[in-house]
Structures are given as structure tokens and as C-alpha cells.
């Protein structure tokens, strides 16, 4: 099962700064609600989702730019488009 990686942040400002930084460097990333399994580790409702292929490049970019974030956490692919569990 493919893993998904989430950059957990303190707040939206931190999250958006990372999103723009990764975009600028052409590293695929997406804004995501913080998965419920990870909310104990992060106070912010949004996180930055990375596909596996972006992980190493993103880590290097965050280090190089001394970006502030809490941690990078991973989950086994949490998406099931046909789960049909709506709100």
C-alpha cells in the first residue's frame, strides 16, 4: 500500500509558507485537512500532503530553507474514493 506523507504545522501561516516554498521549487504538494489520526501531534486543521515521490526533495528543500514545521508523519494510503462515507 502506497504511503502518504503529511507535513504537520503549527498554523495556516506556517503551512502556506511551506506550500508556496515547495510550489516555487516545483515539488508536488497539496493542501489537506490534517488526518484525524495525526491531530494529536498538530494543532492546525491544515497540513501539507506529499506523495511518496516528493518526500526526499521536500525534506531537502525544507532543511535548506530552514522552514518551520512540527514534523513529517506518514499514513498508509488513507484515500478510498469509493468508500462512500460522506459527512
Amino acid at each position: 500500500m502506497a504511503k502518504k506523507f503529511y507535513i504537520l504545522v503549527e498554523n495556516n501561516t506556517q503551512g502556506m509558507a511551506i506550500h508556496h516554498l515547495l510550489d516555487e521549487k516545483g515539488i508536488e504538494n497539496h493542501i489537506s485537512p490534517t488526518p484525524r489520526l495525526l491531530t494529536d501531534e498538530a494543532p492546525c486543521g491544515m497540513s501539507i500532503l506529499l506523495p511518496h515521490a516528493s518526500l526526499e526533495m521536500a525534506q531537502a528543500c525544507l532543511n535548506e530553507n530552514e522552514a518551520k514545521y512540527i514534523k513529517i508523519a506518514s499514513l498508509d494510503d488513507p484515500f478510498e474514493p469509493k468508500r462512500d462515507r460522506y459527512m
Partner: peptide, 25 residues
């Protein structure tokens, strides 16, 4: 329920327009 519903319906899609990042936020 929000994170899994958003993940299943939106973030599971391939090749989405980049500008959707605003609505994802």
C-alpha cells in the same frame, strides 16, 4: 469525518488544477 471525506472525494483525484489549492485550504 472531514479529513477522510475530503481525502476520498478530492485529494484522491489525479491531475487536479493547481489553483484548487485555494479551495483545498
Amino acid at each position: 469525518v472531514l479529513p477522510s471525506a475530503v481525502g476520498d472525494v478530492f485529494l484522491s483525484q489525479e491531475n487536479r488544477p493547481k489553483s484548487m489549492d485555494f479551495w483545498d485550504l
